[in-house]
Design a protein around this nucleic acid. Structure first.
Length: 276
DNA sequence: ACAATATCCTGCGAGC
DNA sequence: TGCTCGCAGGATATTG
């Protein structure tokens, strides 16, 4: 599950390798990964373009092209970008392969086909950018404790699904929401408007700390996430609750429990995180 | 407007 | 051993 730290790691790794390179060809094995525009127009607008810069917004990776277009990639659940020599055997689920002018290939490998790729005018004039309604970036000044209070105080929904909502805050997914709520000692089934200012302050700090630590560890590897060379991240060993059902809580020793919240597998310490 | 739930897709693990 | 079945989940569509 590539969330903000995994996309950030990818963007940082890619920048020195692909900025300045020109896309000289594109091979498609599943054109359905391209959601905008049509595949043929996508190809026309991507090929022969030079990558001027690469950045991230939420879980989207953004390649700025010389034309002013943006090549935008969302990895979904199982998507990865791999920088490979064309001679290296193809991974089992390569959907698109961008051939670069230095002879390398940027492969979009995506077993479950949840990933999405776009080319569009980078200013949003052509159609709204995928992050047009997205909430603040949690690791820069756009994200404030006051803003989070404003976003949560009037909402009756459960805190976990709200934090997964990209319009509230950008970049969180299932792993880091569970980790942040554990760090803040807030139960994922609390109703958002019942959180005190002090509790929202803890959630705010926890989101930032958990994401920063995960970037430091180059992301979390479960099953499918790897970096652009296919190597695992290291942060999974630092996780406190996610996928640790039955293991002792690092804070109190009570076994971690798994429950389902908003249809998503959820991990809590039943002692440190109380619903009421 | 908001909240809750269904949907997409395929590898994998559980169970028989 | 080999088969079937259900689960996993980000974002969006649909329903309430």
């Amino acid at each position: 599950m590539p969330e903000l730290p995994e996309v950030e790691t990818m963007v940082r790794d890619l920048a020195p390798r692909v900025v300045g390179r020109t896309i000289v060809n594109l091979d498609a094995y599943f054109t359905g990964s391209v959601v905008w525009p049509s595949y043929t127009e996508f190809r026309d607008r991507a090929v022969q373009q030079t990558i001027q810069a690469i950045s991230r917004r939420g879980k989207y990776a953004i390649f700025e092209l010389g034309s002013g277009d943006a090549l935008i990639i969302h990895r979904g659940m199982t998507g990865s970008l791999l920088l490979r020599h064309p001679q290296e055997p193809a991974e089992s689920h390569v959907r698109l392969a961008f051939v670069l002018d230095d002879g390398m290939e940027l492969r979009f490998n995506d077993p479950r086909k949840f990933g999405k790729v776009y080319v569009m005018d980078g200013t949003g004039g052509e159609r709204p950018l995928p992050w047009a309604r997205m909430g603040p970036e949690p690791l820069n000044g756009a994200f404030t404790v006051e803003g989070l209070k404003l976003a949560l105080s009037s909402r009756t929904a459960l805190i976990k699904p709200l934090l997964l909502n990209q319009e509230v805050v950008a970049g969180l997914g299932n792993i880091y929401v569970d980790e942040a709520l554990f760090a803040a000692q807030i139960h994922p089934q609390r109703r958002a408007h019942t959180l005190s200012d002090e509790e929202i302050g803890r959630v705010y700090q926890a989101i930032r700390a958990v994401l920063a630590a995960a970037i430091e560890g180059r992301g979390t590897t479960f099953s499918s996430y790897t970096d652009i060379e296919g190597r695992a991240g290291s942060h999974q060993s630092a996780l406190q609750v996610f996928q640790r059902t039955g293991a002792p809580c690092p804070r109190c020793g009570v076994p971690i429990m798994r429950l389902v919240v908003g249809g998503r597998g959820t991990h809590v310490c039943p002692h440190c995180q109380k619903v009421e």
